[in-house]
Design a protein around this nucleic acid. Structure first.
Length: 878
RNA sequence: GGGCGCGUAGCUCAGGGGGAGAGCGCCACAUUGACACUGUGGAGGUCAUAGGUUCGAUACCUAUCGUGCCCACCA
């Protein structure tokens, strides 16, 4: 057999150093363009659209848990021969980016307005040039291999054109309208927010009870509020129509304190009778529920808080211009003075916060653009119910469904400049013209309104509007490209559950509307990452872990492996425990040392990595192949079902505790096949592990007999080429359990591993040279063959495994007695089971026979233990 | 108010209707030959509690307790 003489163990570094290997290997992959793919209709597609990270983004642990599976699956399917590609990109992150740039400008004493739109946008673009690519570099450090040549940006020309086209088409379909509605206003970023961008936080606050007196002074009604400053904008008091306490007051009027306005008492079902006093002040311009009540009762809507967060001119003079929280203090103080404040009690309440700026969101009335969602949602809902889009784990489908069922119109306009400007122009009398280009708008204006005097809407679209098109816009839509043809829909979308309403819902809706298809078949929801105490990782808590720190400590592979190891789909949280990364780092070292061992063999490794004829295999060879076969099957299945934690578990167990601890030990006695088997098993195991740990597997694979340039494109191991011999598994496993008994025997008696234990074996084993050799070398024993083998209770002695099981050794009499007692208990338990007539009658036949086998094997062991005890007694007597 | 996850060894977690598992930590032993980034052995658990289903429950069902998350217009 030809060998590879060049790479001896001494040529390999003694230790595996991830930091050196990873940078070099990543550069190698990029150089040979291994992540790039073109559509190939002859092969099945496998495509993942990378959820575009914000250009302001930095790597965080969440990327580890959601992006590693994308890289893993792309690598897995590529090896399986799919036309696999992972398409990366970035999101312009309108509000987040604008906030960062505006802060920068403020430090220079500049503002958006002082620069003007054009120069401002240039500024943002250059900011993007400078900082936008950081996360791409960080992704490379984690070993992520998307097709960088296909990287897209939501503000690209192509993607922007798609956005404009979609807006215009929705408008022409009557699904986009302009209207004055209550919106979520962020006073810091000076823009609206969609419902999904508002996060509630439970905070301690107060409930102020106010007394409004009737216009004739005949009665007073008490209302409760958590936001007293809004009382300046009250235009009614509402009670429940069935509330006996107030029914007679409905239709009467009270006088609003501090303001003096005369407001009606109305009856509305939205009022909870049990809460507070059962009467609620109604501020239709600053509260969602109140707004709905206002619409139902035709109440005036007074905007008392402005876009700047200050009180407007609609309020009495003393409060005008006051900042909203200062106004609250002033109003409370004045109500108290006026005797309208009944009492103040502590109260915990939900405060709506902007997920962008963190400030308290102000609901207020504003003229905005909205997308009608009901009709669009219906087809998405239908697609889900037809099973065209499937959630993993399944239960997240309900979140999706629930959101679609209760969907409200989507406020798509934002008062910021960085983003896709609305393709909307207005005539001098404020008639909107929606068109894809300015020329078209001018033409339409001339034709329909007889004017060419147009002013463009300065607003931009919600960031999620462009990301909602992502899975098809990055493939070239609206053009019918080969990419769109073969790679759409994607196979799987992977994201966290917090993004379902923000993004998944919109992708499905817009995908259905504009491509007629779901954008992806599976939605994999990965667990959120928590710390060991079960707290959500966040910057403010200071408990977040920077993946770059983990990479520095353990290497990228170990970071990935550690995270994947802890991922269990059914759980919705992943309590991150760094010990798994440390274990993974030691695992990589173990693998590296196994490689060094293979290279240390005097005969060298076979050049081609081909296996010798099966009949030349040793028992250990056949055993490790069978184990490898099982491992390959389980790992493949685990990846297919997104069970990454299971795959990692199985691989660690096989490579470390099966291959290294047992198989390699058997090869320390030279066999003709060992070099070929070692390199074949290592090569195969590296391919199985590669999707999780790309770097170390490449490095090891390159040092083995192999075919091909890189493990990235190596074929996925095929079960057909790995022999499966079930008898070898039984025989070798029996050997293992004997050796473990021998080790325990020594440890129990405080003997050193050098101590040669004499064991008794049936004479029939004497001719089984292979087994006795393994036994003496691994177990470090001498064997005394008995001429009269110990049979089981029915007198049977048969087969190799059975022979091994009849081995007995001199054991500590006390331990033997203990074991005998245990066996008596087990046997008694099983006998009781069999004594129960219901067991035989009702239990499944295979269960009964399994239990029977168990009973027999316990009885056999008891026979052996008793025989050993007898041998001891005889020896003592002599 | 609805919906959902999780309570198994000191810690982080697998498992799963029929003999309680892993890693880390702990204890003991070993050590030049791939590997101290190691190997071997051990101690440690009424599988949250109470009922029910079943021949049999740690596992399935119900309730309770604890804990965490999501949704919702109790101001």
């Amino acid at each position: 057999m030809s060998t590879v003489p060049t790479q001896s163990a001494s040529n390999l570094p003694k230790a595996y150093d991830p930091s050196a290997v990873e940078a070099r290997r990543y550069a190698f992959w990029e150089d040979i363009g291994v992540f790039h793919a073109d559509p190939d209709p002859t092969r099945p597609p496998f495509v993942i659209s990378m959820p575009p990270p914000n250009i302001t983004g930095r790597l965080h642990i969440g990327h580890g848990s959601t992006f590693t599976p994308m890289d893993l699956l792309t690598r897995f399917y590529r090896m399986r021969g799919h036309n696999a590609v992972w398409i990366p990109g970035q999101d312009h992150a309108a509000i987040a980016t604008e906030m960062v740039v505006l802060r920068e400008l403020a430090r220079e004493g500049l503002s958006r307005e002082s620069l003007g739109r054009e120069r401002y946008l240039e500024r943002v673009w250059s900011w993007r040039e400078e900082y936008g690519g950081i996360i791409d570099q960080q992704f490379r450090k984690l070993g992520f291999g998307p097709d960088w040549q296909r990287e897209r940006f939501t503000m690209d020309e192509g993607l922007s054109a798609a956005v404009i086209k979609v807006f215009v088409e929705l408008y022409r379909a009557g699904l986009m309208y302009r209207g004055t509605r209550l919106v979520n206003w962020d006073v810091v970023s000076q823009s609206t927010l969609s419902d999904a961008e508002v996060e509630d936080e439970i905070r301690a606050g107060f409930l102020w009870h106010l007394r409004y007196i009737s216009e004739d002074g005949s009665f007073a009604i008490e209302v409760a509020t958590t936001r007293p400053e809004t009382m300046l904008g009250d235009t009614a008091v509402a009670v429940h129509p069935d509330d006996e306490r107030y029914r007679h007051l409905v239709g009467r009027f009270v006088i609003l304190p501090l303001v003096g306005r005369r407001i009606p008492i109305v009856a509305d079902e939205a009022v909870e009778r049990e809460f507070g006093t059962g009467a609620v002040k109604v501020t239709p311009a600053h509260d969602q529920t109140d707004n709905e009540i206002g619409l139902r009762h035709n109440l005036p809507m007074l905007s008392v808080i402005g876009f700047d967060g200050r009180m407007t001119d609609e309020v009495p003079e003393p409060y005008r211009g006051l900042e909203r929280f200062a106004a609250r203090d002033a109003v409370v103080r004045d109500l108290e003075v006026a005797g309208a404040l009944v009492r103040t009690e502590p109260h915990t309440l939900r405060v709506p916060l902007s997920s962008r700026s963190g400030t308290i969101v102000e609901p207020l009335l504003s003229l905005q653009w909205f997308c009608k969602m009901k009709l669009l949602a219906a087809s998405a809902l239908q697609a889900f119910r037809d099973g065209r889009v499937r959630f993993v784990p399944e239960r997240f489908g309900r979140t999706f469904e629930q959101w679609l069922e209760n969907i409200r119109d989507w406020n798509v306009s934002r008062q910021i400049w960085w983003g896709h400007q609305l393709p909307v122009w207005y005539t001098p009398d404020d008639q909107p013209i929606v068109a894809e280009t300015e020329e078209e708008a001018l033409r339409l204006a001339r034709e329909q309104h007889g004017t060419t005097e147009l002013r463009r809407d300065p607003d931009t679209l919600d960031t999620w509007f462009s990301s909602g098109l992502w899975p098809f816009s990055i493939l070239g839509w609206p053009a019918q490209t080969p990419e769109l043809e073969h790679w759409y829909p994607n196979q799987v979308m992977i994201t966290g559950r917090d993004i379902i309403p923000l993004w998944v819902v919109r992708m499905v809706i817009l995908g259905m509307k504009f491509t007629g298809e779901v954008p992806f078949h599976d939605v994999l929801i990965t667990p959120l990452v928590f710390d060991a105490q079960g707290r959500k990782m966040s910057k403010s808590l200071g408990n977040s872990i920077d993946p770059l720190d983990l990479i520095a400590k353990y290497g990228a592979d170990a970071t990935r492996f550690g995270i994947m190891r802890q991922m269990r789909l059914e759980s919705q949280e992943l309590r991150f425990d760094e010990r798994f990364c440390d274990e993974a780092r030691r695992f990589n070292t173990k693998i590296w040392n196994a490689l060094r061992y293979a290279h240390s063999l005097s005969e060298g490794l076979p050049r081609d990595g081909k296996l010798p004829a099966r009949k030349t295999f040793s028992l250990a060879d056949r055993w490790i192949f069978a184990r490898l076969h099982q491992t390959t099957a389980r790992v493949t299945e685990a990846y297919e079902h997104y069970e990454f934690g299971v795959a990692a578990d199985v691989l660690l167990d096989f490579i470390w505790y099966t291959f290294c601890d047992w198989y390699i030990e058997t090869t320390k006695i030279a066999t003709p096949t060992r070099a070929a088997v070692l390199s074949f098993v290592l090569n195969t195991a590296m391919r199985l592990l590669h999707p999780i740990s790309p770097f170390v597997t490449e490095e090891v694979w390159q040092a083995l007999p192999k075919i091909g340039e890189t493990i990235v494109t190596a074929p996925w191991p095929s079960l057909d080429e790995i022999p499966l011999d079930p008898q070898a598994v039984l025989d070798f496993d029996a050997l293992i359990s004997v050796i473990e008994r021998i080790r325990r025997y020594r440890a129990d008696r405080g003997l050193t591993p050098h101590y040669k234990v004499e064991i008794l074996a049936p004479a029939a084993l004497q001719t089984d040279i292979e087994m006795t050799t393994l036994l003496t070398s691994l177990g470090h024993v001498t064997i005394k063959f008995l001429t009269n083998p110990i049979a089981n209770e029915s007198g049977e002695v048969a087969g190799r495994t059975a022979l091994l099981q009849t081995l007995s050794i001199y054991e500590d009499p006390e331990l033997l007695r203990k074991r005998l007692a245990e066996l008596d208990d087990e046997i008694a338990r099983l006998e009781r089971k069999f004594a129960n007539p219901n067991f035989a009658a009702k239990a499944a036949p295979e269960v009964v026979s399994k239990e029977r086998e168990k009973l027999v094997s316990f009885e056999d062991e008891r026979t052996r233990v008793r025989a050993t005890m007898k041998v001891q007694e005889d020896a003592t007597e002599k």
